[in-house]
Structures are given as structure tokens and as C-alpha cells.
């Protein structure tokens, strides 16, 4: 019962996708990455919700929309802890895990101001690497410089 109540904080959907456990501060980046600002379908979201595991969290529910794996993996950069559930007819049809892709195109800007991607109309391309502490970093396909997590800015 208790669980049901919590769910009601953000309206239930009959068909579509629920993305839960998004870091609260990154809800709008997930919106942008998944182009939810352009969708014609109903979207509900909540942010700064209570989370046992992470303190606060965000949640997004998108009606009548299912994402391809390569699309959903793009949010791994801003929401690696997110969980994704596909709902069909009010039932949980499947749980999808999010994994960090080995290559990222677009989404993130190259940190190097003298990189060709910041001068010409070129889509950014990165190889995903990890530093000694396990933190994600991106190696630019063009200028070969790496952009660390703290220097990542997203195309908005």
C-alpha cells in the first residue's frame, strides 16, 4: 500500500516508459538528451523526490514511448544510477538496465576551446574512458584531448 502511494506522487501511465532514480539535479539534462522537450506524448516528471538510496531523486514518465537501447544509453552520462521500466497496460513489461556506451556522439561539448568541434559545424565524437578512480572521461575523436566529468557541458 505504502508503495502505491508513493507512486502517486507522479501520475501513473498505462503505456510507456518510466525512468526512475535520476540524480535530481540532472532531470532536465535527461529531458534534453531524450528530446522530451519536443515530444507530442504526455510526460510527467518529478524532481527532488525522497530516495532511500540517494537522498533525492528525479523521475520521468513518458506515455506511449519506448526507447531503443542506443538512445537510452546516452543518459548514462548524466544518470548512471537511473533505472528504466517499460509499462504496458499498467503492468511492468520489462526492466531495462542502462549501460555506459563505448562511444558518444553529440550530447557533450569538447572541453578544448581550440578544438575543431567548437569552431566548425562538426558533431562531437568521443571514446568513453575511465580514470584511475573509475570516473568517466571522454577522449575527443578530433583534438584527442580528454574531457573529465567535472568539465562536461551538454549541448542545450
Amino acid at each position: 500500500m505504502n508503495k502505491k502511494r508513493k507512486e502517486l506522487l507522479v501520475s501513473a501511465i498505462s503505456n510507456g516508459t518510466v525512468i526512475d532514480h535520476i540524480p535530481a539535479e540532472n532531470v532536465f539534462q535527461v529531458f534534453k538528451i531524450l528530446s522530451l522537450d519536443k515530444t507530442k506524448h504526455q510526460v510527467y516528471f518529478g524532481t527532488n523526490l525522497e530516495s532511500k538510496k540517494y537522498g533525492t531523486k528525479g523521475i520521468i514518465k513518458i506515455s506511449d514511448t519506448f526507447f531503443k537501447e542506443e538512445v537510452i544509453n546516452k543518459i548514462a552520462l548524466v544518470a548512471p544510477t537511473a533505472t528504466l521500466i517499460e509499462i504496458r497496460d499498467y503492468e511492468v513489461a520489462s526492466k531495462v538496465s542502462i549501460s555506459i556506451p563505448s562511444k558518444i556522439e553529440g550530447i557533450v561539448k569538447c572541453f578544448n576551446p581550440n578544438c575543431v568541434t567548437n569552431m566548425e559545424a562538426v558533431k562531437t565524437k568521443f571514446e568513453v574512458l575511465f580514470d584511475e578512480t573509475g570516473e568517466i572521461k571522454l577522449a575527443c575523436h578530433y583534438c584527442e584531448k580528454t574531457t573529465s566529468k567535472k568539465n562536461m557541458t551538454f549541448f542545450m
Binding site: V116, V122, E144
Partner: peptide, 9 residues
């Protein structure tokens, strides 16, 4: 070229 990555592009 003075811009980094210009040759790859």
C-alpha cells in the same frame, strides 16, 4: 592548421 582536430575533420 592552428585548430586542433582540423586535420581529422
Amino acid at each position: 592548421h592552428p585548430v586542433e582536430g582540423s586535420a581529422r575533420f
